[in-house]
């Protein structure tokens, strides 16, 4: 079972939470909570287990960000959600050297939320124009802003 293997692989990392998810309700088999600095290790463990990065995004919780990484596997149905709390004006370690596919996801989050990723090879705006000076998915960015 991939789920058990993942629990075993993540155990030595001393993560905040590694628990089975409620699949019927959330679509997760495994829920993980970790600190930003632990992310590269988690990603490394996920890659070793043969998982792919399904999706990555951030949620602006006003006082902090919640970063959500979704991992899944081609061989077995097992979706892992990794939640990371990140304070405003803080940066994140990149995992684009582990998952090259994360490159664009990180650029997107940088673009839409303004979160900086350390050691990212090409951190520039992805979806918005290069000269945009706003981050539209922040909660303090109103519905009418930015479209003059």
């Amino acid at each position: 079972m991939l789920k058990d293997n993942l629990i075993k692989a993540l155990a030595p990392l001393n993560l905040e939470k590694v628990a089975e998810g409620d699949y019927a309700k959330t679509g997760y088999h495994l829920e993980v909570a970790a600190l930003p600095a632990q992310l590269p290790d988690v990603a490394q463990a996920m890659l070793a287990a043969g998982c792919f990065l399904e999706s990555f995004t951030a949620v602006d919780l006003n006082e902090a960000f919640d970063l959500v990484y979704h991992f899944a596997s081609f061989d077995e149905l097992c979706r892992t959600a990794v939640h990371l709390p990140l304070g405003k004006k803080k940066g994140m370690p990149t995992i684009s050297h582990i998952y090259p596919g994360a490159d664009w996801y990180e650029r997107e989050v940088f673009d839409l939320f303004g979160i900086h990723f350390f050691n990212h090879p090409n951190l520039k705006r992805l979806l918005l124009p290069e000269d945009a000076d706003f981050h539209p998915l922040l909660k303090d960015f109103g519905a009418s802003q930015g479209n003059d």
């Binding site: 043969g50 998982c51 792919f52 990065l53 081609f74 998952y99 090259p100 596919g101």
Partner: peptide, 9 residues
């Protein structure tokens, strides 16, 4: 390749 599929999703 298979490897690329995993790395890029």
């Amino acid at each position: 390749t298979r490897d690329q599929c995993i790395k890029y999703g």
